[in-house]
Design a protein around this nucleic acid. Structure first.
Lengths: 99, 99
DNA sequence: CATATTGTTCGACATAACTCGAACAAGGCA
DNA sequence: TGCCTTGTTCGAGTTATGTCGAACAATATG
């Protein structure tokens, strides 16, 4: 498996990021990653099928919210916190702290 | 025209608010209101037809982002800043300050 | 009352988005 | 090599969302 493409910080679009966060499944993923730091896809699958999760990870990746690092067979995901904070100060924190 | 229903602070849903903000037209409306304080629908219509704008205002209203006050024939819109800030601290500011 | 102004509502259409099974790809290991 | 694990990709189906014209409602004004 080839490495993923991650968008550059300067190209993050606010509406794209907001749309990516505006889904319950993805919000759950983001909050989980905020707690554990890094996780592979499997550990994040609740009751949803793999293909659905793969889709959500792609949306999050394409928007710039997370990064996926390949290690063997596993794909390790983590938030791009510093970059997100640089481009959209306070946004991620507000979302993570929200009820 | 009867007064509008505005959702209660405690019922604001993060995903609903994010989805409402995740549209270019609505983001423009929100940013404009942040600048001018209050505005009726007509002054916010760019090239879009009235029915489209009415739809966007409804989405923003239903999510809790803005309030609409009826004064004669005009409907005056303004952000529910304090309430939004109470429920989602920092969120609106992050969105308004974003590039 | 007649008319203009402001917006809403309705209905239809187009497009985007989420969901999920099935097939596929790549790495690790016996 | 054969098989298991981890995810992706594809395709189809369903639902949600945005767009816009046309008709309607409410208020103000001549």
């Amino acid at each position: 498996m080839a490495a993923y493409d991650h968008p550059d910080l300067a190209t993050f679009e606010l509406t794209v990021v907001l749309r990516a966060l505006a889904d319950p499944a993805r919000l759950e993923i983001v909050r989980h990653l905020a707690r554990v730091g890094e996780a592979n896809c499997a550990t994040l699958i609740g009751t949803r099928p793999k293909s659905s999760m793969s889709h959500h990870f792609q949306v999050l990746r394409d928007s710039g919210i997370l990064r996926t690092r390949i290690e063997g067979v596993q794909h390790r995901n983590s938030l791009r916190r510093e970059e997100l904070d640089t481009r959209f100060p306070g946004l991620l924190m507000a979302v993570l702290n929200a009820p």
